[in-house]
Every structure is written in structure tokens, then in C-alpha cells.
Design a binder for these strands. Sequence first.
DNA 1: GATGTGCTACTCGGATAGCCTGTGTCCGAGTGGCGACGG
DNA 2: CCGTCGCCACTCGGACACAGGCTATCCGAGTAGCACATC
Lengths: 159, 159
Amino acid sequence: MSEGVEWALHSCLNLTWAPPGEAVTAAKLAAFYSLPAAYLNKHLQALARAGILASTSGPRGGFRLARPPEKITVMDVVTAIEGPEEAFRCTGILAAGPGGRTDVDYRAHCVISQTMAEAELAWRGHLAGRTLADLKATVEQRFPHTPENTRNGFANARA
Amino acid sequence: MSEGVEWALHSCLNLTWAPPGEAVTAAKLAAFYSLPAAYLNKHLQALARAGILASTSGPRGGFRLARPPEKITVMDVVTAIEGPEEAFRCTGILAAGPGGRTDVDYRAHCVISQTMAEAELAWRGHLAGRTLADLKATVEQRFPHTPENTRNGFANARA
DNA sequence: GATGTGCTACTCGGATAGCCTGTGTCCGAGTGGCGACGG
DNA sequence: CCGTCGCCACTCGGACACAGGCTATCCGAGTAGCACATC
């Protein structure tokens, strides 16, 4: 899985603590964890295309959450970065075997494909059931001064 | 995910129906689905290294299951091909942030890492709970002549 | 006819190229803010 | 003093190189079986 997923999740979570109605630049988000700003920007663009973030150009511009954290699941972020297609892609090689039909959808009939699809469904279900608001609440409970620290980090970061 | 996983799973399942005590060559397994034999061989080697298959060189050689199908899970096969490391790899970027410690294992404390790990655990659990014997039984119930067809395919396949 | 030996063909195993998806970087288009200028 | 205009700096957005891993292939090491010569 792409490393950008981790960056995107942490960045979205940090945006949760940004001052309301204020946009944070990609440079500030990157400086938070010493990440390459231009590359993180690329991933943030993907999140914006997916409708998770809203982007603003020019001075005082940057990124902010397009929806309240309760409406953004971890699965949404992963899908925005990794793409919608599932990890295990059934190529239907059974069609090339003896007794194979080319007019049959083996994604639905092949037992192996079904098993992998079920497992992936369980994975997706876990991630779809966890929202940014859940993560935010958990972090704030464990580390109460995280919101303040994050805001200060944004304010002190140059660029 | 690598396409070799699909090939490996189908090949292992086909080996389930091979005549007992008889080895099947990589060429025959590849001919079954018109796959490149040399490349499939590479994946079968990985399965052999993982102790899932037993390989024999020379004439009358080939591959056979190293354990009864009840003792081989889908997860075993996936791990043998894809490697043991988990898909989401927490790089601990929190350590580079404000208040980050380099002596803390963020794979255990970072909420994002935990969430991804739980989801992946669900995925692995599903695959670890499904054995080759389960797949074999399901296929035989749906398509009763598959064992015979597979054996004939092995016999008729040249090379 | 039985047996030992050398050869042959066959199969796995690892070493070797090619390609395609991330990874990382750069510069241009667009925009809001600020200062200067004029009324 | 107030309004307008022009410039400028800032930010996203997409186009451009680089790398690592998956895909694909080939040839060599080892071995089981067979044919043949010999006893």
C-alpha cells in the first residue's frame, strides 16, 4: 500500500484541529512531519478531487476539510489515494482452463475470487466504520493537549 | 496485490486434485490456464520455500502439496507470495512531529496505525479461516466433475 | 537372463533483462492582498 | 480622507524525471530412468 495513505490520514486528522474556516497550506502540513511538501501536495490534490478536502489558491489559501469529520471515513481517504479498485483483482483465468466459458463472470462464480472479496469486504467494513471524528476523539482523550499543540504547530511553521 | 497470488491459489487448488503421491510439473500447471510456465515456476518456488509445496527435480519430478489441504490456509499462500509484512506499514511519522519521541513505538500507540492494523487483522482472519480443503469441498459441491476434469487436464497437457 | 554402468532427457532453481506503478521535483496559471495614486 | 487601480507574492495544479518492484525469460545444476554392455 502506498505510503501516501499514511500521510493523507495524518494530514486529514491534523486538519481536524485547524482553526475553523481557516485553510492550511500544503507546506505547513508537510513541515509538521518533515515531509516533502510538493509530493504531499500531490496527495492532497487527490483528496480534493475525491471531495474530501476543499482547496483554495492564492494568499491565505490552502486546504480544509470539505465535510465535517463525522462524515469522513478512513475508507474514504484510503480510496482517494489508492484508487477504487480492490487489491485482489480476479483476472478470470478459469476462462482459459478446460471447461472455461468466456461469457461467465468469474468474479462472481470463482470460489477463490469470492473468498478474497469477502476478506476485503471485512477490511473495507472496518475502515468504513471509523470516521475522522472517532480518531479525533480518541486522540484528544489520550493526549488532551494535542489540539493546542497542532494549532501551534501550524502557526509556528514557516511557509 | 500481485497477480501471482491468483495463480498460486488456483495452482494449489488444482494440486488438491492431483493423483496422490504424484508430482505435477510447473509446465502442466501453467498449461492449465495458458500461463507463462517459467514465471509460474518462480511463484511455485516461493511456495516451496514457504513449506506449502514440496518440489522434486528430474524426470517424474514436479510439485505436490507438502501438507494435507486442511492444514493449508489461503493466508498461508498469500503470505508466501506477497511476503509477511503487512500492507499498511506505519513509518512512525509522528516521531518527526512536535512532541514526538524517537523512543516510542508508534505502531502500538498511533491511532491511525491501530485502526489500519485492526482492519488488516480482520482481513487476515478471514483468509486464515479458509483452508484449501474448504475451497476444494465447495468447488466439488458446485461442480462435481471438477476433480476428474482436472486430472484429465494434467494427463493431457504436454510437457 | 541378471546386473552394473554410463548416458540422456527432464525438471527445478537461481541469475538476468524489460516494463509499469509509485516517488519525488519543478515550474506555470490563477488569485487574494497590499500599496500607490488620484479625486 | 476615501475609492480605485496595478503590482506582487503566494498557493494550488499539473507536467516532468527517477527508482523499485513486479513481470517475463533463459540457462545451468541435479536427478531419475533407460539402454547397453558385460558376466
